[in-house]
Every structure is written in C-alpha cells, then in structure tokens.
Design a protein around this nucleic acid. Structure first.
Lengths: 224, 224
DNA sequence: ACCTGAACACCGTTCAAGT
DNA sequence: ACCTGAACACCGTTCAAGT
C-alpha cells in the first residue's frame, strides 16, 4: 500500500505532528485505503471521516486528493471494475456461453458483496459491471442477436440478474423482523396450501433459482 | 387530516407557544403527514426534523407518537400496503392471470414511485408488496403449482419484477454522467456492431421489456 | 503542493424538564 | 398524557490558513 521509505500513518515510524505536515499520500493510496475499509467493515463504514482517520489524516486531505465522496466512489468502483473483468466466458453452444457470461456477473457480485452493495447504493452498478456486460453482449452477437434485439436481450437478462442481486445483497439481519418476507409469510393467515406457505417462509436457494430463471430468459431471446 | 375543532399547526388558528403546549397530534396524523411529505418532496425529504417542521412540532414529538424512524417507515408502508391491495386480477387463462398479478406489482410501484423507493431503501419492499404477492401465489395455486414449486415460481417471478423495479425507480438525474449505462455504452470502443452499441446507448422501453421478460419466466413455471 | 483546524448545515436519537 | 429545549454523536463539504 505504501512505500516503506515513506513513514506514513500506516507504519510505526513517528510522524511529525501539527498543521502542514506531509502524510505522503497520493490518490491511489486513498482509493486503496477506501477499498480496504469497505472490504473489512462493509460499505456503511465508508465515511470521509472514517477513511481519513484510517489513513491518519483529516477529512480535508481526502478532498484534496480525490475530490468529494462521489468522486471517491467512482474511483473505487472503476478500480474494482478492472479487477473483475478477467473472468473468461466458458462453454461451447450459445446458450451455455450466455449462461456463463450471466453467471460471471452474479458470481462477481457474491464474491464482492461489500463493494457491489456500495456500487448499488450509489448508482454505480453499471460502471462496476460494464466489462462483464460487454462480454454478455459479445455472446449475444456471436449467437446472431444484434442491434435493437441485442439491446433488448441484454437488458432483459441484466435486469433479471439485478433482481437476484438485490435479494442476495440485502442484509436481512439489518431489517426489522416485521418487514422480512419469511416472517410475513409465516404470519400470513391467507387460505393457501400449508405446504406453499411453509416453503415461502423458508430460506430460498438463490443459486439454483438464479440458474433456472436466467436460463428461461436467455432461451426466450435465442433463435430456435 | 385534522379535526377542525382542534386548532393545530396545519390550521390558521393561533397556537399557544412555549414548552408543554398541545399540538393535538396523534399517531395517524404523523403518518399521514409523512405520506404527504414523501409524495410531495420525494423519499429523501423524510427526515425527522423535516417532518416535525411540517407538522409544526419538534422532532421529539414524532418520537413520542410513533417511535423512531424505522417504526415510522414501517407504519407508512403498512398503510400504503393496504391502499395498494385493491387491484383485482384479470384474465381467464392461468398465464394471463399470472401476468396480470405480476403487472399489478409493477404498476403499483410505477404509480407510487416515491413510497416504493422509500420502501426499497429501508428494506420494506416485502411489506409493501405482500398483499399483491399473495394474489400472485393464489394464481399459481389456481394454475396447479403448489408447495416448494409454488415458492420457487413465486420468487422467480418476483425477483425478475424486482430487477425491473430497481431500474425504473432509479433516479438517473441524480447519478453522475460517468456512471450511467447509456454514457458507458456510448463511450465504449469495443468491437461491437454499431447498431447494437447505438441501441444500448438509447433509453429502453421498460414496459415492453417487462412484459416479454416476465412472460418468459411465468411460462417456464407453468405445466405445458 | 500538500495538509490542518474550524466552521456550516445537516442527520437520528435521548433525556430531563415543562404543562 | 403530550410536548419542548438542549444535548450527543454522527454526516458531507468548504474555506482560510499553515509549511
């Protein structure tokens, strides 16, 4: 994270106190520190004051290096976006390859919950996922779907994935019991089949459901 | 909203000043005021101080009547949930009736953007949509889908709807240009068909896309 | 060029006090 | 029972000032 010859706040070397001292930070250090903070303490921990304290500076230093919170988030997501871009699409047929590309978006989100949540809360999902979305569109074109049909198919698949992501990223423990779906179904006295009510009150297997649902959507966009 | 014989802050009658005076509010008044505030100024306007000012009281009065912000949101959503519950499912075949039930969730959200956004931001979507979800499950059972299969189908359809809702409720104007999907595609220099890129940079017709996508998901859960 | 200190305008929430 | 005033611990952001 830091050069060893710079004895910054993250090292144990004594740091000169008082106004005007140098912390030896640059833009990349701030972004790296923010990434670390989010991964360790969740997206809610990314406040200007918290990050500044972690870096051993005052909040105004963050503003000097990267600008406001919005710029910082953009920079974090842009960085993470490149990290996530590497997954190669697998499979031979168009259907398998499209499912592979779709699963990459899903799995990247689940493997990086905190950053994905941050992106979602700040309207930066498109930025984060863009390289993986490009891969999806490529497979659509390879399958012979182009132009407006490709855009429609892409969004159709992408929004479906998005619905599952919202569900997977939601922190259920932070939601009051009265608002949780499981509790609502358990408390419901509608005239439904008891087996149905029981199944609705249980925890879903999101991965299995994701596959079946996205496959149906993918298939609806492929030429027969 | 208020009894006319109570001369509260929303009336023009002079109100006694100073500590300890009566505002004549009850729990329902506070919730109604909150609903009005959200509908007029958006979900971001619902702060304890803002609401208190609108009601002509101090924030602590809100706490006395409805508890903290979480309790207030729950109460607002619970109220709105009952308002939304009225839409009757239409159509004759299982497929049409399921699509009708699904569209009710979609249209309710579009007709009540501010409150739906508030619910989504506070993890209260399940609470808001629950009556409409019950209607969806009823149609699944009427179509012969019960137990775990009904739960799977319900969630599959619901999460798909959720993905479209997130898209529709997002306030694009509040998102920096660099993060917007349209801008990302327009700036992309990937080797894609120009017609595809152009279509991806344009504004999608969400209603049309919603119908096609949800229909594909619904069909995948119906017995052939 | 790089960083601090103080301030501004916000949040949700609590607690003692008033009538 | 119903409501206020003051306070606490937070936010993001700006601006003048220091080295």
């Amino acid at each position: 994270l830091r050069n060893p010859d710079e004895h910054g706040p993250l090292s144990t070397a004594p740091t000169p106190q008082g106004t005007g001292r140098r912390a030896g930070l640059d833009r990349a250090d701030v972004v790296a520190g923010a990434l670390l903070l989010i991964q360790n303490e969740g997206p809610g921990a990314l406040t200007m004051r918290n990050l500044a304290a972690k870096l051993g500076v005052t909040t105004t230093t963050i503003y000097w290096h990267v600008g406001g919170r919005d710029d910082l988030v953009t920079e974090i997501i842009r960085h993470q976006s490149e990290v996530q871009a590497a997954r190669p699409v697998e499979g031979t047929g168009p259907r398998d390859r499209l499912m592979s590309a779709a699963r990459h978006i899903w799995e990247s989100a689940r493997d990086n919950r905190a950053i994905t949540s941050l992106a979602h809360q700040n309207g930066a999902s498109a930025l984060l996922q863009h390289p993986l979305e490009v891969a999806l569109v490529r497979e659509l074109e390879a399958a012979g779907v182009t132009g407006p049909a490709a855009a429609a198919a892409h969004r159709s698949i992408l929004f479906t994935i998005g619905g599952f992501l919202v569900q997977a990223l939601r922190d259920e423990s932070a939601i009051p019991a009265e608002r949780r779906a499981a509790a609502l179904w358990a408390a419901s006295d509608e005239q439904l089949d008891p087996a149905t009510t029981e199944a609705l009150a249980a925890r879903p297997d999101l991965d299995e459901l994701f596959d079946a649902t996205v496959r149906a959507v993918v298939d609806s966009h492929l030429p027969i």
